[in-house]
């Protein structure tokens, strides 16, 4: 008995409702941008400076009591959150304490941390400090900058590569799809106020990598079919290409999602935000390679007559290994 997620021959019309799908994408991107502007991101210490202390104790976490112990130290904004995880069990109670960057200090001094630890330990003798991380505002500013550069450079390189391998319309479509994915991912981080740190940037770049992977596979088939069916209308060639690769798209997304869900459930709370970002991105990325990238190529049109010599202009590397 063979498992088939997609029937053998499909001929779904993916582009019949392209105004609707484009509309949904535009609305989603705009909403994400608005949410991002209004709610902001919950930056981790990597990006905003400050200190996080992770505490573990067999006794239950009492956020109010913790706050009562730390407030007299006068450290400004202190955020205390209890961390829940299905793998913890009743004997393991974890809390994260976040101190803001202290005035005039690059990283929170050892004395300050020792004071906080002493105050908390007075409350609960069994409390241990699983991790203490402190980042100064100077470094965090640079980290933000290099993260933005990383995302920008990644997009640019991908655009150039696709332009060389395909046509410029494909490059525009692919990069628009990437922006779509990244902005939606940032939007979901903003809505759910998930901590946004260096690992999240890595997750965003992974989403870019995956989404482009998906987009390119369909583009590749589209290029092949454009050569094969020279007179077929563009929208039909596209539908054909998407249908032909549909089984692969679903299989690959499926296996990747399977792996990620395992990590999401079992991987522990430390990397959950990171894994969540990737998981969300894979879903959105699959959607965007089907719709955003193709809708744009459809809108821009493609040079169809591939037999003329000058048709090779943008694809001089296209046949290198085909």
């Amino acid at each position: 008995m063979r498992l088939r997620l997609v029937p053998q021959d499909t001929s779904y019309d993916f582009f019949r409702y392209r105004t609707i799908t484009s509309g949904i994408s535009i609305v989603a991107v705009v909403l994400s941008l608005i949410v991002w502007m209004v709610m902001g991101l919950n930056f981790g210490i990597d990006f905003s400076g400050g200190t996080t202390i992770r505490t573990e104790s067999p006794a239950a976490v009492d956020v109010g009591a913790y706050r009562g112990a730390i407030d007299p130290l006068g450290l400004g904004d202190v955020r205390i959150t209890e961390v829940f995880d299905p793998t913890f069990g009743p004997e393991r109670n974890v809390a994260m304490i976040r101190l803001q960057a202290q005035e005039g200090q690059e990283s929170v001094s050892a004395e300050t941390i020792a004071e906080v630890e002493a105050a908390l330990q007075a409350l609960d003798q069994q409390l241990t400090f699983a991790s203490v991380e402190s980042v100064g505002p100077k470094v965090s500013g640079e980290l933000v900058r290099s993260a933005l550069i990383a995302v920008g450079v990644a997009m640019l390189l991908i655009m150039v590569y696709i332009w060389l391998r395909f046509e410029w319309q494909f490059a525009v479509g692919a990069v628009a799809a990437l922006f779509h994915d990244v902005i939606l991912a940032i939007g979901i981080f903003s809505v759910l106020q998930i901590r946004f740190d260096l690992a999240t940037i890595a997750a965003l770049l992974t989403i870019i990598g995956y989404s482009i992977n998906d987009t390119v596979v369909i583009f590749d088939r589209l290029r092949e079919n454009l050569r094969k069916f020279k007179t077929m209308p563009l929208v039909d060639v596209m539908n054909l290409s998407v249908n032909e690769t549909l089984s692969r798209t679903v299989m690959t997304s499926g296996t990747t999602l399977l792996a990620l869900i395992a990590l999401l459930v079992l991987g522990g709370d430390v990397i959950r935000g990171f894994v969540f970002a990737i998981t969300f991105g894979i879903v959105v990325g699959t959607y965007s390679s089907l719709y955003v990238a193709k809708n744009i190529v459809l809108q821009l049109g493609v040079k169809r007559d591939w037999s003329k010599p000058d048709a090779e202009a943008g694809t001089q590397f296209g046949d290198a290994d085909a």
Binding site: E106, S107, A130, S131, E133, V135, K138, V139
Partner: peptide, 13 residues
């Protein structure tokens, strides 16, 4: 020297 970043990760974690 000023320390710009300090991180301690417990072995249990």
């Amino acid at each position: 020297m000023t320390f710009l970043e300090e991180r301690t990760i417990g072995p249990e974690l």
